[in-house]
Design a protein around this nucleic acid. Structure first.
Length: 917
RNA sequence: GGGCGGUUGGCGCAACUGGUUAGCGCGCUUGAUUUACAUUCAAGAGGUUACAGGUUCAACUCCUGUACCGCCCACCA
């Protein structure tokens, strides 16, 4: 009958302890003048969010920092919350509505927003629950939502502050427009993606040579200019063709008029240096309302701006025959028509990159539209300075450059969005004043306008306009004329316009703000640097007069085993909740952390979590073993007592030294944000030193109190070190080791006792372990089974070593499974022996008949050769005067020492070789 | 076009400010069931650190160049 193996079962402990922590308010932060504060604000996940590996990594790192600092005695606050995620959330709710056959316009704005709130109440806390499963020790009593009333107030106030400073303006510009979401987007929200496209060469006939280019008989086309474009459908909005003034091919055409095919409009040929003569045909169609560069040209040359699209991407009334076709449908139709008229010269494949909506991945349409912007230059100044002078540091450092580069080339921020879910702009308009001032038209033209260039660049104009009222609440009457006919701007603000206030707008009172702000460190992924990190820095300086955090830790992106980003659409997602269910939260956390080198991307596969699971199990079983073998009294003994009595044996001193060494390393690496290093150090200490060696040795003396105390103390201290990484299992075992000493999460971090680190003891024990390893190795090579009797001898002329060997003789015998071990001074050669060298000791076991002499001699020969090679190169080094002169003394000394050792080794190995014959 | 990261045993990754014998995990080979743990233990095999130069007494580490992989930003008619 096989017994059921003893395994750690995470499910039972995790729920229990999380509840316990919450009920005891251990996550709560209070202003405490006696303590230093340590604050982290969570990167607020979207309310629509569900936990993915990126969250798991991000929040595990934060929780490690938080739990570590809490144990170190700081008053820590991990501020949680969620982001209303305007577009994403609106999309989700609209999708739900669509199932009922409804669109948001069927409901109307107010009803729709009610629906979103209902949805939010129902599903918005999913991500929070999942973060709890992850063990996150956030102060949930402070949980914030970016649409909370107070938070919304802060958003409006900030808008007004910027308004008053003249940093907010309205303008007609070509912005990134998502035809699916039907809203403007900022540049950051429309990332470019490479894609396969085509370059279409289209003939634009000259005016006057033929009445109309598209009706010439027999398919001949009169004199024309060929333009190349990737988006033929935009030709409907062309208002010029531009060539380089230096281009000989086109010089004669400059100033002439072309007939725009299909639209049959007249457009001029103009000249501008901007044109690259080498690209395409050197002649460029200009569509000022549908391309950012053409927009600049249009402005410069006073062209007309013809917007030919509806907001949903269909061609509008200005598009003639193509009216109401979708933009891509229109593209095909236009190509077909051009072909028929023989106006399409050719189509070439052409790689291009186009902006995509970061929410729905639809191809962005550059679109002329009236939007609100924030002038960023003045805000960027202190934010640049802070990073340049080191007030804010990036980890790893290389991200500094990325940040500075963006900040130095900062563009104005388009903050208005044509959606409903979000913070509505605190702008109101008085209809009466507007009528009196007909110049101003704040209402959006639905994409059918033909604008002359003077209509653009009205920057700041509304600020001087008496019909525009900026206010936190709806004014009862117009302060200018007293009219009550007032309405609010329809647009909402970019979601990031609320997120950038997160480090301070999350606080509910001044006292908290004063105590917890600035926060300590921000933990996030590289994608978010521009969206959020940079803007928070600007907001921190602008509205608080102080940086929002001093350190920014940028961790890698979680990818699948092939290096692809994990995404639902690719189907390569490893769900952290599945891992939690199968292996436990601690296993998930530990594995994730231990494979995440600082700032490097993480390549995940499910198997990687086995390491964490196995480690949990190891900790579990080792603890069980220790607890079942020690006297409960031991748990109350002070370690200092036995230490003072110097009752500690060499192995006790060793494991304590190793523990404090581990502690030192863990401290160092945590301070340096090297979480994987810290985790791996803990792992190898506990597994390969504490369990593999010390626990095995301790079995010999387990009855002794000293042994029990050391076992218990090291275990108990280790649990504390491991707690930030593996909160649940450590809490459970902490409780089991001593039900009376309270929760581990509020226990104190072990104090580093440098005097316990004893390099000499470590070296000695190292030697002993080598001895054991050599004996085990000999056994294996000789193919001696463990149950076979075996005798060994150790020779050493050094008295100290003999004494050491004598002292630990029973241990060596046990670990190497010897029946007899003699320790002697003078090496007496026995024929037919098997020998190895450890330090200054000569380890010998008699040969048995099993050994393959030839292969053994071969191996021996290789060893000798390698040692001789080493020796030669070392001796060459020492002979080199330059080396002896220039290298540091200790390096030279080390080399000399090594030479002596190598000589000795070679000598002994040769003796062994002789002995075999 | 600009910037950044990577290239180290079969696989995935380490190695701080140059300094003995380049570590770890997985995998592989062999052996162990007197056991806290087979989610275990022991022993072993496996690398001239992408390539070409350079600096240095000394290069995985610093510099220059090349190749390949990946990312970011900008432009693209």
């Amino acid at each position: 009958m096989s017994e059921t193996p003893t395994c750690y079962n995470p499910k039972e402990t995790e729920e229990k302890w999380y509840k316990f922590w919450e009920e005891n308010n251990y996550f709560k932060a209070k202003v405490n003048p006696d303590k230093k504060s340590f604050t982290i604000v969570i990167p607020p996940p979207n309310v629509t969010g569900i936990l993915h590996m990126g969250h798991a990594l991000n929040n595990t790192i934060q929780d490690i920092l938080i739990r570590y600092q809490r144990m170190r005695g700081k008053e820590v606050l991990w501020m949680p919350g969620t982001d209303h995620a305007g577009i994403a959330t609106q999309n989700v709710v609209e999708k739900n509505l669509a199932k009922e056959g409804l669109g948001r316009h069927d409901l109307g704005r107010e009803k729709f927003i009610e629906r979103v709130w209902v949805w939010k109440e129902q599903y918005g806390s999913t991500i929070i629950r999942q973060l709890k499963k992850l063990g996150a020790s956030c102060d949930w009593s402070r949980t914030r939502f970016t649409m909370d009333e107070e938070y919304s107030k802060a958003v409006k106030e900030v808008f007004i502050k910027l308004w008053d400073k003249g940093l907010i303006y309205q303008d007609n510009k070509v912005i990134n427009w998502c035809p699916r979401c039907q809203t403007a987007l900022s540049d950051e929200e429309a990332p470019h993606k490479d894609m396969e496209g085509s370059l279409y060469y289209i003939k634009y006939p000259l005016k006057g040579l033929s009445p109309s280019g598209d009706e010439s008989p027999q398919g001949t086309v009169p004199e024309h200019v060929v333009v190349a474009t990737t988006r033929p459908e935009t030709m409907l909005g062309d208002t010029a063709v531009v060539v380089n003034p230096k281009d000989k091919r086109y010089k004669k055409y400059i100033g002439k008029t072309l007939i725009l095919p299909l639209a049959n409009r007249e457009i001029k040929i103009i000249a501008d240096e901007m044109v690259d003569m080498k690209f395409g045909t050197g002649a460029v169609k200009v569509t000022p309302a549908h391309d950012p560069n053409d927009y600049i040209l249009g402005k410069k040359h006073s062209l007309e701006f013809i917007n030919v699209m509806h907001p949903d991407g269909r061609i509008n009334n200005l598009g003639g025959d193509y009216k109401d076709m979708d933009r891509f449908e229109a593209r095909q139709a236009i190509i077909k028509d051009l072909k028929e008229r023989n106006l399409l010269e050719k189509i070439e494949p052409h790689p291009l990159s186009a902006g995509h909506c970061y929410r729905c991945h639809t191809i962005i349409e550059p679109y002329l539209s009236k939007q609100w912007f924030v002038k960023m230059g003045p805000l960027a100044k202190p934010a640049l300075e802070a990073v340049k002078n080191g007030t804010i540091k990036f980890h790893p450092r290389r991200w500094t450059k990325v940040y500075l580069n963006w900040m130095e080339n900062i563009q104005d921020w388009c903050i208005s969005r044509q959606i409903w879910w979000g913070h509505r702009l605190p702008l109101y308009y008085c209809r009466k004043c507007q009528q009196d001032n007909s110049h101003c038209d704040p209402e959006r033209s639905e994409g059918e306008a033909i604008l002359s260039s003077k209509d653009c660049f009205v920057a700041g104009a509304p600020r001087n306009d008496k019909s525009v009222i900026v206010s936190c609440i709806k004014p009862e009457k117009c302060p200018n004329c007293g009219s009550t006919d007032i309405y609010q701007d329809e647009d909402v603000l970019d979601t990031w316009f609320s997120s950038w206030l997160w480090p301070f707008a999350t606080f509910r009172n001044q006292e908290d703000l004063k105590y917890f702000y600035p926060t300590a460190v921000l933990v996030t992924a590289p994608e978010i640097i521009f969206f959020w990190v940079a803007r928070m820095v600007m907001a921190g300086y602008e509205f608080m007069g102080k940086e929002p955090f001093s350190d920014v830790y940028i961790h890698g992106t979680v990818r699948d085993i092939e290096g692809k980003k994990m995404s639902k659409s690719l189907g390569n997602v490893i769900d952290p909740l599945d891992i939690i269910a199968e292996y436990g939260t601690d296993a998930l956390r530990f594995s994730l952390i231990s494979i995440t080198a600082q700032g490097q991307d993480v390549f995940l596969s499910k198997e990687r979590f086995e390491q964490g699971r196995n480690f949990s199990n190891k900790i579990w079983n080792a603890t069980r073993f220790i607890l079942s073998n020690i006297d409960p009294e031991v748990t109350k003994t002070d370690l200092c007592v036995i230490f003072k009595n110097s009752e500690l044996g060499i192995f006790e001193r060793w494991i304590l030294s190793r523990f404090y060494n581990t502690l030192k390393q863990v401290n160092k690496n945590l301070e340096a944000y090297k979480f994987n290093e810290a985790a791996n150090i803990l792992y190898s200490f506990f597994w390969h030193e504490f369990c593999d060696w010390y626990l095995e040795l301790a079995k010999l003396t387990i009855q002794k109190k000293t042994t029990q105390i050391v076992l218990y103390k090291v275990l108990e201290k280790f649990l504390r070190l491991a707690h930030p990484f593996m909160p649940f299992i450590t809490e459970e075992l902490w409780y089991q080791t001593n039900p009376e000493h309270g929760s581990i999460m509020i226990s104190s971090w072990p104090h580093l006792q440098e005097n316990m680190i004893d390099k000499k003891v470590e070296q000695k024990v190292e030697t002993i372990f080598n001895l054991v390893a050599v004996l085990r190795n000999m056994r294996a090579e000789l193919e001696i089974l463990p149950q076979d009797p075996i005798k060994a001898k150790i020779f050493s002329t050094v008295k100290q070593e003999r004494l050491l060997a004598e002292e630990v003789k029973p241990y060596i015998m046990r670990l190497a499974r010897l029946d007899q071990l003699d320790i002697e001074e003078k090496y007496a050669h026995i024929s037919g022996e098997f020998t190895a060298i450890v330090e200054k000791m000569h380890v010998v076991i008699p040969l048995t008949g099993v050994l393959d002499i030839a292969s053994y001699r071969n191996k021996l020969g290789q060893k000798i050769k390698k040692a001789e090679n080493d020796l030669n190169s070392k001796e060459a080094m020492i002979r080199n005067e330059q080396f002896v002169k220039k290298a540091p003394v200790e390096v030279v000394e080390k080399e000399r020492q090594r030479i002596i050792e190598l000589k000795e080794t070679i000598h002994k190995l040769k003796a062994v070789e002789d002995g075999i014959r």
